[in-house]
């Protein structure tokens, strides 16, 4: 019984012909697009001319997993940040740092700054949007860090050290 009823229904649908166009148009017009926009449209970053990589049906590419650029890097970042805590607290407690610890503090701050700037570049200079600028910034940061490392070495070996300098300037 059911199969007979179903075939009759199918036949009815099949013979009904296409749905009149006007019905579709009026029902979609009843859903105003404006209701989805609750704030004024602002073209903060208008989209660039679009380029499709691969074919239309390809999924978004997944980057190769690399622990040295992923979890190891993340853990290393946290270790550096955590090791800065005792190096920062000690001068307040002891009044000063010995030259070795002062040099260690400078080196750790330098690494912490470098990885911090690195994440800023990764976040705000996306490779897919400006690959050349990204490369320029990355190499610029490496050069700057090398220069600052040299400068900190000079400062630590010819002057009184970072903590002592801050102390003298602060109490001046």
């Amino acid at each position: 019984m059911a199969s007979i009823a179903r075939s009759a229904l199918l036949r009815q649908v099949a013979t009904a012909g296409p749905v009149p166009r006007q019905v579709i148009a009026s029902s979609s017009r009843a859903l105003p697009v404006a209701t989805f926009h609750t704030s004024a449209r602002r073209n903060l970053l208008p989209p660039l001319p679009q380029k499709v990589e691969g074919t239309v049906n390809d999924p978004a590419p997944v980057p190769e997993p690399s622990p040295s650029h992923g979890s190891y890097h993340w853990t290393f970042d946290r270790l550096v940040a955590a090791s800065l805590i005792p190096l920062t607290v000690t001068p307040f407690a002891a009044g000063s740092l010995n030259p070795t610890l002062d040099a260690l503090l400078c080196a750790t701050i330098l690494i912490h700054s470098h990885t911090g700037f690195q994440s800023i570049i990764i976040d705000y200079v996306p490779t897919w949007r400006m690959p050349r600028v990204r490369k320029l910034f990355n190499w610029g940061l490496k050069a700057a860090t090398a220069v600052v490392g040299l400068a900190l070495y000079e400062f630590e070996t010819t002057d009184v050290g970072l903590v002592e300098t801050v102390k003298r300037v602060w109490t001046a």
């Binding site: 700057a144 220069v147 600052v148 400068a151 000079e154 400062f155």
Partner: peptide
């Protein structure tokens, strides 16, 4: 600031 100061120091 550290990068600017260190470069200026050099």
């Amino acid at each position: 600031a550290l990068y600017v100061f260190a470069t200026a120091y050099l």
